[in-house]
């Protein structure tokens, strides 16, 4: 049988293949994996960089925005010369330089309730690198319908949080919240916070795809960067959740 990894890839990923839990078999799983990253901003930048570097075979990156000067304190896929370009174009260059083996698809589509399912289809993992709750809920629902793992991340100031949703097994994002909330708008944030959370999201994706370790399923971590403290909250499936609860008990279609 022809090896999946080339000699160059074996050398590129040598240090992580040395991790007993990963090995060649795990690396091959990463190469076969298909990950959707929604957002190429504060969270999407570190998540995409970590996943591309780790050898995820196929990534779809979606963002409908262009690079602005005020993005550059945290959106490390982009640089000064990229201001005004589509974020996904800038990201394509950065990720291509990092790892030419990556099969990257990009789109400037705006993800919403009407198209989240279509974008989610064909992916093993959906990374929530979004900046608003409405789209997060759309992606959460798409994950539940496709069975893809949904890895939530969010930041504000020095505070961040992450939660992994395994459809059918663990609480979903809607099991936590009763509905819409004010949008973040021009929220305060410093780059280290999404760097931490985006890297955790990438780690969750890698563990899920290779079937190793323990996921943040049913437990949400909250990072207080100012204090350098972590909290962990248990999150239970809500039987009456309007996204993942029993159909007879859902209060919306």
């Amino acid at each position: 049988m022809k090896p999946i990894l080339t000699g160059g890839e074996m050398e590129r990923y040598d240090r992580q293949i040395l991790i007993p839990e990963i090995g060649v078999a795990g690396q091959e799983k990463l190469k076969r994996a298909r990950v959707l990253i929604c957002g190429a901003g504060g969270l999407g930048s570190p998540a995409a960089l970590c996943l591309a570097a780790a050898g995820i075979g196929s990534i779809t990156l979606i963002d409908h925005d262009q690079v602005a000067l005020s993005n550059l304190n945290r959106q490390i896929l982009h640089g000064d010369a990229d201001i005004g370009r589509w974020k996904v174009d800038s990201a394509r260059e950065t990720l291509g330089r990092l790892n030419p083996h990556l099969n990257l698809k990009t789109s400037t589509a705006r993800i919403g309730a009407e198209n989240a399912l279509a974008w989610a289809a064909g992916h093993d993992v959906l990374i929530d690198a979004l900046d608003n709750m409405a789209t997060r809920y759309a992606l959460n629902r798409a994950a539940l319908e496709t069975g893809a793992a949904f890895i939530h991340g969010a930041v504000h100031g020095f505070e961040g949080r992450a939660l992994t949703v395994i459809p059918g097994r663990s609480a979903c994002l809607r099991c936590l919240h009763r509905g819409e909330a004010p949008e973040a708008g021009r929220f305060p944030v410093i780059g280290v916070t999404p760097a931490v959370i985006g890297a955790i999201q990438a780690a969750e994706a890698i563990k899920y795809l290779t079937g190793i370790g323990e996921l943040l399923a049913g437990r949400m971590v909250v990072y207080d960067g100012l204090r350098a403290r972590w909290s962990e909250f248990k999150v239970n499936k809500n039987p009456e959740c309007d996204h993942c609860g029993r159909p007879s008990e859902r209060n919306t279609p």
């Binding site: 957002g39 901003g41 504060g42 969270l43 999407g44 929530d128 690198a129 979004l130 900046d131 608003n132 709750m133 997060r136 991340g153 969010a154 930041v155 504000h156 505070e159 961040g160 949080r161 936590l176 919240h177 909330a181 004010p182 949008e183 973040a184 929220f187 944030v189 999404p194 909250v222 909250f233």
Partner: peptide, 8 residues
Amino acid sequence: ITVMLAGG
């Protein structure tokens, strides 16, 4: 008491 975070 915590607050939902929406930023990304």
